[in-house]
């Protein structure tokens, strides 16, 4: 498989590192960012093949804003949103209906904690 680049964005440095280790182990190149702003710079510079973004960074909806930005700049790039919203607030949403996809600029929304196999499978599907 030709090496694909995945951008991982989370304000928790350890969660980024954990994902990075696992993604690298299965053959991805990984670039990382810890804030909305940093992620925009990294994406513009490295043009990753896919992005995995934590929903709640410095602001409650930074992940949405970032996903929106990325989809506008790089419409072809798959975006996966990770969220603890469901377990923390009871609000449930995903990106499976057309209506939800119209405002959530992400291809997949996964609930934290995410099993790595699930994330990996989604990435493979989206990058196929």
């Amino acid at each position: 498989m030709s090496e694909k680049t995945v951008m991982v964005v989370d304000d928790d440095v350890d969660l980024v590192l954990e994902l990075q280790v696992q993604l690298e182990a299965v053959g991805y190149r990984v670039v990382t960012a810890h804030s909305d702003k940093q992620a925009r710079e990294v994406a513009d510079k490295t043009h990753p093949d896919a992005a995995v973004i934590d929903l709640m960074m410095e602001e409650h909806d930074s992940g949405f804003a970032l996903a929106h930005y990325l989809k506008r700049r790089m419409p072809e790039m798959p975006v996966i949103l990770l969220t603890a919203v469901a377990s923390e607030t009871g609000i449930d949403f995903d990106a499976t209906t057309a209506e939800e996809r119209s405002w959530i600029r992400a291809d997949v929304v996964l609930d934290k904690p995410v099993r790595f196999e699930t994330l990996h499978a989604q990435l493979q599907r989206l990058l196929a």
Binding site: D14, L15, E18, V21, Q22, A25, A84, K112, P113, F116
Partner: peptide, 18 residues
């Protein structure tokens, strides 16, 4: 929850010999 998730993630890495 944040530190728990971080430590749990690291333990999982060890568990899977990743």
């Amino acid at each position: 929850k944040a530190p728990l998730a971080a430590v749990e993630g690291y333990l999982r890495l060890l568990e899977r010999r990743a």
